[in-house]
Every structure is written in C-alpha cells, then in structure tokens.
Nucleic acid binder design. Structure first.
Lengths: 150, 150
DNA sequence: TGGCTGGGTTCCGTTTGACAACCCAGGGAG
DNA sequence: CTCCCTGGGTTGTCAAACGGAACCCAGCCA
C-alpha cells in the first residue's frame, strides 16, 4: 500500500467496496459518530446534523437494517414510550474508521487546531492509530504491502 | 468514544464531517484505493470499478481539485501524450482510512476469508491498526475518550 | 378541549447518478 | 492519403436520491 504492489482483486469482493456500500455517502458515518457521542434521538440528530428529516428517517432505517444501529424503546417520567438508536457491536467496531477519518481531516482540512482529540482516559495521553504487525514491529507506512490471503 | 463522554461540537467544525465532504460517497475512496494499487488510468479505473464514464470524470476532477490526486502527462513509445492520476501526499495519507474500512468490512460483511491482507513487507507479518497513546500505552477501545483540545 | 412535543410521513422541486451515444487527437495499416 | 483504432473524455436523457416544508398522530398536560 505504501508502494505499488499491483494486488488488484475483483471490486465486488473487496471489503472496502462492501463497506462503502453501507457507509458510502454523506450521512451514515456522521450519524454513527453522533451516536458514539451520545446523540441518540431523532430530533437531536436532526438538529445537530442539519439533515432533512426524511433523509434522516431513511438513513436510520438503513443503518438498523444493516445491523449497525438498534432501535429501542425508552420511557421518561410522564412521557409515553419513545425510541432511540444505539450502536450494535458492529457499529461500535467502526471507531477506527472514525478515528482515522478524523486524523486525516485534522491534518488536511483543518483551518486551525483540531477541535477535539482522542485520549486515553486512564492517563490522559493523546491517542494515534499505529500499524503493528503480528511480530510486534511498528510498521513504517512505506513498508506496508498487500498480500492475497491463503 | 468507547464510552459516552458527551463531547459534541459544531458539526461543521468536525474533521469527520469535513473529510466526508470530500470522501463521502460511493466512489471517491474506491478510486483512491485503486490508485494505491497502481490503477491510474481512466480506462482501467472505469473497467475495474464498473463506474459510469461521466461520473468517473467528475470524481477524478473533484479529487484533483481537493488535492488528493494529481493529473499528469505521460508518454509511451509511439503514442501521443496521455494522462494518468497519481496520489498526492494528502491522498497517500488516506491509507489508515482504507485499512480500517477494509478491516471492518472483513469482519462484518465478508462471506468468506478476507481476499487480501495488509502485510509488513520486511517480515511478511499481517498488520493491524492499534491505538497507542503518547505515553506508549496500547489503548483498550473502552478506554478511548474524546477531549476538547486546548 | 385544545395545545405542545417527539417522531415521524408526504409532496414537490432540484441535484446527482447511470447508461449510451458521440467526439476528437494522434498513430498505424493498407 | 484515407481509414480505423484507442485513450480519454463530453453530451443528452432518464431515474433515483436529496432538501425543504407541510402535514400527521399519539399521548401528556393545562
């Protein structure tokens, strides 16, 4: 990947292409990000994202159907049952995608210092994603390649 | 991010939202992935991705304008000058996004073993992205938080 | 009884995408 | 010299997706 190694497979077998089939438009990942941050209700999402209400409905249903979100009832005192959306394990597994997108945006699209940063809650240190191989080496991006798997 | 910490910022200052402004649709990241793998020419991209030609034209121009690709002339023996697209440093910096999307797709959308795997070319080991904090701790995803930066 | 609120659905006009046909420059075959 | 082929597009047409705004409905509350 750092260099060209010419490993090209059928596009429809590619996991990146499949992932983009679910996540490949403007809103899905932003919704997932907001849900990560505790924004779980229709109105809150609609206001924070400034997304059209019908589009939000469609995306939420789509994400539920794709198994990334779960729609579930909750009830507050003196209110009828309402619904909120929460991440499933598959949705929660998207954190590396969000982290790497955020890091890239911070580096290449920012007009100032990054507004938020990921931290290790135990020690307060800033966190980065680092490529590590199964033998424990930290991998220089130039030494990253692709291999057809056995 | 692992837990809810309620750090919600303006959506238009969010690097994820900005990144999705450039990359947030079906094709851009697939084009970047193909260029990583050495597919650089219009026709080759069009055939591999099965994308409409006018859409490919639009995407390529958009990616050039966004500074992720560079359009440059090349010449083969007995042919006139033609053009190919190559990654700029900003485009090359997207490898963690592609890696994390691929890992997620492999885990949650695959119908068999992953077709390709990232490897450390020096030692042949499989590579994963690991969150590491500035104090050198490997961070458990549950210990990942967000902090408003100073 | 009527209003307010959360969580939508419906309608309509605009944008974006897919598919197919066409274009154009230069090299090579006849 | 003419014709055709190839890479790299552009143009035209139609369908799907998006945005904005209006409408709806159930239940709590005054």
């Amino acid at each position: 990947m750092g260099g060209v190694r010419g490993v090209v497979i059928d596009n429809d077998r590619c996991s990146i292409a499949r992932a983009l089939g679910v996540l490949g438009e403007r809103w899905s990942l932003q919704i997932v990000r907001d849900v990560f941050n505790g924004v779980r209700r229709f109105d809150a999402l609609q206001q924070h994202l400034a997304i059209a209400r019908n589009v939000l409905t469609n995306r939420l249903h789509g994400l539920v159907e794709a198994g990334l979100l779960e729609r579930r009832p909750y009830q507050e005192f003196g209110s009828r049952v309402r619904y909120e959306y929460d991440l499933t394990p598959a949705g929660r597994d998207l954190w590396p995608v969000l982290m790497s997108l955020m890091a890239w945006g911070d580096r290449h699209l920012a007009d100032g210092p990054p507004p938020v940063e990921p931290e290790h809650v135990d020690c307060g240190g800033r966190v980065k994603l680092v490529p590590v191989c199964e033998h424990g080496h930290t991998v220089d991006p130039k030494q990253l390649g692709l291999r057809l798997s056995r």
